[in-house]
Design a protein around this nucleic acid. Structure first.
Lengths: 363, 363
DNA sequence: GTGAAAGCGCTAACAC
DNA sequence: GTGTTAGCGCTTTCAC
């Protein structure tokens, strides 16, 4: 927003800003060198208390504000962190953004937010473009390849969220334990066959959840089938619900809550009761999971904590704390039982709705 | 993320980045002057096609990326837009952020996102701090005073969302018409007394909605009382529900959907039916308004469009289009009828729940 | 069409 | 403790 040329007189020409005062203007007004003004702001302890006070006061009077741009050029530090998200409107990321933003702000850093539109190509372009403009990156649910991520990490500080690529530091939400609890929960309710509604193809979380669910189901000897990959949206859930019915399962676990909400909506529309006929279990516990109908049983993911932790790791890396910055933070999920899961229907009931799918589809 | 000193050799020292190649490195490798390399990137038409091609190719090979910081210093342009939001976790703003982000990205701009934590002071500090780091601001639901906003506008490009302060350009969502429709809707259902649950004290939208509701109620001769100011959250809605009952109204209109969801939750907990005993009408149509229980009748606000429009105005201002950049965009809301509003109960019923509030409160 | 040179506003040695 | 002097990597006149 800097304009140029004109002198820094306090002319009130609204809209057409006058040149903002620089360090030199302040220096001249104070009768000191520019470097002293610089120090008064960035290294206050290295300047005489009296002169510092005078400099600060006059600077304040003149309306002087240090230019972050000019400051960043010689120092190499922008006090800015890049946060890349596949889809800013996915509610899953809201609290991630919040956590990251809060933690960054607390440390005097500003967040540059960009949406990669679920595209590896866009993501790569953004990393390239922002590389010199930020001190480091937090990449949430990155769609880049392992190779690309390692290369980016070699170029500068980089933290991954929900992705694990050695040796890049990161924070992952581990659903392994939670999905075992979830499976036990379903089995205890009499469910013997589960459908998993998978997430996006390139999603690390999806792969990880699928593996965890497979292992839990094997151990507990329950049938498991997978449908997907699916876009992690309500609409995709609506569209997948009919396929779920064809599988003749009594329970469905979804990659995320959005899919779960979509499935429930479609099942309701078809007159199928949740959890009476089919139990639905989500993942993430997003905003709304507690007030949808029925309230969703889901694996709560501590995503705000993850955002905070990612920024902490990044700040540690920037501070040169190599031990801390090599860490992998693992956050567990927590099974949150609400009303979308219930006892499996007696087997005849369970199948009534799915035995004649073609007839029902026309309804 | 620039490091310094070391030569730009392609050493594979992971984590410790080598100095990134500059325009001078490329120039040397091409046997041209640095200014030619500069032009090849920023003014391609002013350089011979052949040399341009060579420069671009060698630059690509060397992995050269222009530094946005260094570029911004002499040019004064950062190709970055500041977006300030009172609360990034408020779902109302999600689509605003999306709209702004998409529109900015399409024009090659990057969004710097900051959360003002609903505080005028934090907001003022952020504007100050980011002023020289961005080309302009979009302030959503600003908590600053009119005076502060005019001053900021005089310093540089600034667009307001959901706030109207002449002569600062902006986009507002006008609920006047929508609230009249909403009131008619309620009156047609037999409601004669409405409670309005107000939003934050400093909210322009709240004042505007209150005025619109007053005028609609006066015209239609229905009783209207106001409760608030309230924080625009589910929790505040829960907490305000009991006070609503004391007013012996049959309908409640809330500043936003979050409050509506909170009110409904508390009413349910008390065994009061929505819309059987009381109708609830929200504002905004946020994510979740369609799948909460009962689905919310609400005034849908085109907030993503607002985000897009705000960035458009800002880009116009940056392009020096003074006509366009002085515009006020007004976006209407749309009454979306779902299931949280219904016929007013017969008057004896309507009062049963509120006549003995102290007795009920203990239950 | 291309090069040389002078900054943009600040930081960071290095003297004094 | 403070001033002097170089830059940081790029853009931008101004010559040629």
């Amino acid at each position: 927003m800097a304009s140029r040329r004109s002198a820094p007189e306090p002319v009130a020409n609204a809209g057409r800003p006058t040149r903002a005062p620089t360090i030199h203007d302040v220096a001249a007004a104070c009768g000191v060198a520019a470097s002293t003004v610089s120090r008064a702001f960035s290294r206050p302890e290295r300047v005489n208390a009296a002169t510092r006070a005078r400099v600060l006061e006059i600077a304040e009077q003149m309306g002087y504000r240090p230019s972050p741009i000019a400051r960043a050029l010689p120092s190499g530090r922008t006090t800015t962190l890049g946060l890349l998200i596949p889809d800013v409107t996915n509610p899953f990321f809201f609290n991630l953004i919040r956590g990251a933003e809060r933690q960054a702000a607390a440390a005097g850093y500003t967040i540059v937010l960009a949406d990669t539109d679920e595209s590896a190509e866009v993501e790569a372009t953004l990393v390239d473009r922002l590389f010199r403009a930020v001190d480091g990156f937090v990449l949430a649910s990155s769609r880049l390849s392992d190779r690309q991520l390692r290369a980016a990490h070699a170029r500068g500080p980089l933290i991954l969220v929900n992705r694990r690529v050695s040796p890049v530091p990161g924070v992952v939400i581990d659903s392994t334990h939670g999905l075992r609890r979830a499976t036990e929960h379903l089995v205890s309710l009499g469910h013997r066959k589960i459908v998993y509604l998978g997430g996006p193809r390139a999603s690390w979380s999806d792969a990880s959840r699928w593996r965890a669910l497979q292992s839990a189901c094997r151990r507990l000897d329950v049938d498991l089938v997978r449908i997907g990959p699916l876009s992690p949206t309500v609409e995709a859930g609506v569209a997948a619900a009919d396929a779920v019915l064809l599988e003749e399962a009594t329970a469905v676990v979804t990659f995320n809550d959005l899919l779960a909400i979509g499935v429930i909506r479609r099942l309701h529309a078809r007159g199928i009761s949740v959890p009476g006929d089919i139990s639905v279990l989500g993942n993430d516990d997003i905003f709304g999971a507690d007030f949808c109908h029925p309230p969703l049983t889901t694996l709560a993911a501590p995503i705000e904590t993850a955002g905070r932790a990612a920024v902490d790791l990044l700040l540690a890396a920037l501070a040169g704390d190599s031990a801390e910055s090599r860490r992998q933070v693992i956050l567990p999920t927590r099974l949150t039982i609400r009303d979308s899961t219930g006892p499996a229907p007696a087997s005849s009931d369970a199948r009534r709705h799915t035995r004649t799918p073609s007839a029902e589809r026309t309804g």
